[in-house]
Write a protein that binds this DNA or RNA. Structure first.
Length: 405
DNA sequence: TCTGGGGTCCTAGGACCC
DNA sequence: TCTGGGGTCCTAGGACCC
């Protein structure tokens, strides 16, 4: 009999802050931005803050209106990752098959582990106790015969709870479930549910497959058909196929100046290139994203015959897309770039394809990456002015390294 | 109340080939 | 002399998740 635990840390970022700062305990803590930060949103609100109506993804200015006495923090990702690693390590002690979904949640396959862990309900209880004892954090847990239902169950047990769907009870659970709790159905789909008068899983259960696919499309219609019958989603079990990395920036005020926009793009490309080298992956497809003042969003992408090999090359590819796409005069609130369809670096690089300048360039970048890696405080970067000179000189790096610290 | 950043997956349509 | 069908690769946009 299959048995999965979905374990989810409660109000994770806010809880870590309350642990590290005892004076925050019992008070509304809002992680995501300071009250004056334009265009920031709430990342995590402590349960004390939620009582004021503050929740994730809410603009900070709105949160401040609801809860001016709150403690506002920008957040410390490095610290959260550290705590997360400790928790994931504890999970590994309970299951050989831990599938981490994000920084604060994971599936634990405990099928057939009854002799070691005791009955599943006992295992879940012990897991919560161990995490609390060793980290001070509380955990919400869902237990079911498949991952999809375990995930929904943990959400319904929050905070610090445990919700068990007994084997054989899956279909009944899904049919009585309010559609608002169906995982994977967001705002737009909820609108469709309302339009068709669907209130619970049972309303979906009654429809034949072809009606569901007519309303929701082929993929999601099939998914719903299975979900309300208590069957797990296949997508949780498959290996993730494609990979991509991206970086974007929202400006506090809309940008109109092309030089300023291109400077931001340069920074973003630099960040991307270093991450790409660090991962030792390759990509032939670059992508650009522009969000305008009215929040309308456009994107462009292009696949090249060869992978991106240097920072210079990445920037030129992205810049090419930007100049084709951007209609001058429109205010830009966000600019972003990405590398799609990442492939593993296939052992030896095709160095023979690079000319001398490119090869030197690439090595310089790798050196900078390495220094940044060893001395995280150094923040070594290549200046944009240096790049402009170097590309004008057709790949002959000049002596002045143009690094800023 | 104006709406982050980093991801994944799906859809529809075009180009091209056999 | 008016137009099939399948496969593959690519692009833009959108929905959703944490």
């Amino acid at each position: 009999m299959n048995c999965f635990i979905h374990a989810d840390l409660d109000a994770f970022y806010a809880s870590v802050e309350q642990l590290d700062h005892p004076e925050y305990r019992g008070k509304p803590v809002i992680v995501g931005g300071l009250p004056g930060d334009r265009r920031s949103v709430v990342s995590t609100a402590s349960y004390e803050a939620r009582a004021f109506g503050v929740h994730s993804a809410m603009p900070i200015v709105q949160a401040y209106r609801l809860c001016p006495e709150g403690i506002y923090l920008r957040g410390r990702m490095a610290r959260y990752r550290e705590k997360s690693a400790v928790v994931m390590e504890i999970f590994s002690g309970f299951s050989f098959n831990v599938q981490q979904l994000s920084i604060d949640e994971a599936f634990l396959d405990i099928s057939g582990a009854e002799r070691v862990l005791g009955p599943p309900a006992e295992a879940a209880k012990k897991l919560k106790e161990t995490v609390h004892q060793k980290t001070g954090l509380t955990l919400s847990v869902g237990l079911a015969s498949n991952k999809y239902i375990a995930k929904i169950a943990s959400g319904m047990s929050k905070p610090d709870g445990c919700f068990i769907i007994p084997p054989g009870g899956e279909e009944q659970f899904m049919r009585s479930l309010p559609v608002g709790k169906i995982w994977g159905a967001g705002e737009k789909t909820q609108e469709l549910f309302r339009k068709h008068g669907f209130k619970t899983g049972d309303d979906i259960y009654r429809l034949p497959l072809d009606s569901l696919t007519a309303i929701f499309g082929s993929a999601f219609g099939n998914f719903l058909y299975r979900a309300v019958r208590g069957e797990g989603a296949a997508s949780f079990d498959e290996e993730r196929g494609s990979h991509s990395i991206s970086a974007e920036r929202t400006f506090p005020y809309d940008l109109y100046d092309e030089f300023a926009i291109e400077t931001a793009l340069f920074d973003i490309c630099q960040n991307l290139m270093f991450r790409l080298l660090d991962l030792r992956w390759q990509s032939r497809t670059v992508a650009l994203k522009i969000r305008y003042e009215d929040f309308s969003t456009e994107s462009a992408r292009e696949t090249f015959s060869s992978p991106v090999s240097t920072m210079n090359e990445l920037y030129e590819r992205i810049l090419g897309l930007f100049r084709k796409k951007y209609r001058a005069g429109r205010g830009i609130r966000l600019i972003g770039a990405g590398l799609l369809n990442l492939e593993t670096g296939q052992g030896a690089r095709q160095n023979e394809l690079f000319d001398d300048g490119e090869e030197k360039e690439r090595r310089l970048e790798e050196t900078i990456l390495e220094i940044n890696h060893k001395f995280p405080g150094a923040a070594l970067k290549r200046g944009r002015s240096w790049l402009a000179q170097s590309s004008a000189a057709a790949g002959t790096p000049n002596a002045g390294p143009g690094m800023q610290d």
